[in-house]
Amino acid sequence: MVMMGLEKLMTSLKSKIKGIKKRKQEPDYYNKIDKSESMRVEIRSRKARKLIQDTLKIADSPKTRSYV
C-alpha cells in the first residue's frame, strides 16, 4: 500500500519536472511585452548615462590625450 503511494508520488513528480523543462525550452518571444512610452524613455536614459560614463572614463584615462 505504501509502495503504491510512493510510486504515484514519484510519477507525479517526474511529470511535473518534465513540464517545467518543456516550459523553459519555449522561445522568449512568447514572454515579450509591449514597451510603454515611459519604459522607452527609461531605456534611452540608461543608454545615455552609460555612454556618458564610458566617455568620462576614457577622458579621465591617463593614456588618452585630450585637446583643449
Rank of each mutant, 00 (worst) to 15 (best):
S61I: 04
A48I: 00
K18Q: 07
V68H: 12
Y29S: 13
I20E: 11
A59C: 06
Y29D: 10
M10H: 14
L9P: 03
K24S: 07
I52H: 07
M10C: 02
S61M: 00
I17W: 07
M4F: 06
V68C: 10
L51I: 10
R40L: 14
I52C: 01
K24V: 02
D60W: 08
R23K: 11
R40N: 05
G19Y: 00
R49Q: 12
K35V: 00
V2E: 15
S38R: 12
K21S: 06
T55L: 10
K50M: 01
K22G: 00
Y29T: 03
I20A: 06
D28N: 15
K8M: 01
K8P: 02
M10D: 09
S66F: 12
I58E: 15
Y67F: 05
K35F: 10
G5C: 01
M39H: 07
L13D: 01
L6K: 10
V68I: 03
A59M: 02
R23A: 12
E26F: 09
M4C: 03
M10G: 09
M4Y: 11
Y29L: 06
R46A: 15
S45T: 08
S38Q: 13
L51E: 00
K35Y: 14
P27T: 09
T64E: 08
K63L: 00
M1E: 13
V68P: 11
L9S: 06
E7R: 04
K63M: 01
E26R: 11
S15F: 11
S66Y: 12
L51H: 06
D28H: 09
K14Q: 07
S12Y: 13
D60A: 01
K18T: 01
L9M: 03
E37F: 08
R49C: 00
S15M: 11
M4R: 13
A59W: 13
L56N: 11
S61F: 02
K32T: 10
I52R: 11
L56F: 10
K57D: 03
M4H: 07
K21M: 09
R49S: 01
S12E: 14
A48L: 11
V2Q: 13
T64G: 04
R44Y: 06
L13T: 02
K22S: 04
K32M: 01
D54R: 02
Y29E: 12
E26D: 09
V68D: 15
I43D: 05
A59Q: 02
K57I: 04
S45A: 03
L13N: 03
M1D: 09
G5S: 14
I43V: 01
M4W: 07
R44H: 06
R23M: 07
V68N: 12
D28S: 15
S36H: 03
T64L: 04
S38W: 15
M4S: 08
